[in-house]
């Protein structure tokens, strides 16, 4: 059975696709220009939802990892892995879209801005997470290791953020906080984009869980 043999999944995917297209249209043609930032500002309609998705993904890793360690049911392990993978994809996209915006606005692609730095550290942490999944030995053991690492990493996030934030206080902070001051249309499109991106996350997560379950099935069959 493929992922798309379920009607619900197809419907969800189609709705998401339509909303993404509407969002793209709104961001290009409807969203008002913001003075000084011009076109560069529009990446925020993507950049912030991406960050939101990465955050949701990593919170998912924390929650699913704890449940997995308590119940030891492989379902939760698959959820944790799926959340980690999806979260890391979005994390990488933040790291790509951040510099694209920063280049025209700040004049250089990379600054040690707290959030960007935190994201980079997080990305490295989760690369390690996948490494331990890969090299951790037997399936059950590497799952346990990964669950513990997922918890350690999630606990580390606030500490990394505070440390990095005070480490480079001179670096400009993100300006999107005052985005809403410009026009109510900006906020409307922003929340629309946030909603769409959350749907994308749900699609990706469900698909990854489906694949994960198939992988586990195959693994169990090969053991029998």
């Amino acid at each position: 059975m493929t992922y798309f043999s379920k009607k619900g999944n197809v419907l969800l995917a189609i709705i998401t696709l339509v909303l993404v297209l509407i969002g793209l249209w709104a961001i290009i043609f409807v969203a008002p220009m913001i003075p000084q930032q011009e076109w560069a500002q529009r990446i925020f309609y993507y950049h912030v939802p991406l960050a939101w998705n990465a955050f949701l993904g990593y919170m998912g890793v924390l929650v699913f990892s704890i449940i997995y360690l308590v119940t030891r049911k492989s379902k939760w392990d698959i959820y944790a892995l799926s959340a980690a993978e999806v979260g890391t994809v979005f994390c990488l996209l933040i790291l790509i879209t951040g510099p694209i915006w920063a280049k025209p606005i700040w004049g250089k692609a990379w600054t040690w801005e707290p959030r960007l730095t935190t994201t980079l550290i997080l990305f490295l942490l989760y690369v390690g997470y996948f490494m331990i999944r890969e090299f951790g030995g037997p399936y059950e053991r590497s799952s346990r290791y990964a669950a513990v690492l997922g918890i350690l990493a999630a606990i580390d996030i606030p500490l990394i953020y505070f440390a990095v934030d005070f480490w480079a206080p001179a670096v400009q902070s993100h300006p999107q906080r005052d985005m809403s001051a410009h026009s109510s249309m900006v906020l409307k499109i922003f929340f629309f984009s946030l909603f769409t991106y959350t749907l994308i996350l749900i699609n990706m997560f469900r698909y990854r869980v489906h694949v994960g379950k198939l992988e586990l099935q195959k693994l169990e069959e090969s053991h029998v």
Binding site: G137, Y145, I160, V164
Partner: peptide, 19 residues
């Protein structure tokens, strides 16, 4: 207790210890 222990220890430790 994994295959790539010598690599994994620093790779996992350094980002965790960044604060």
């Amino acid at each position: 207790r994994t295959r790539m222990g010598e690599v994994l220890v620093p790779v996992l430790m350094f980002p965790l210890l960044s604060p």
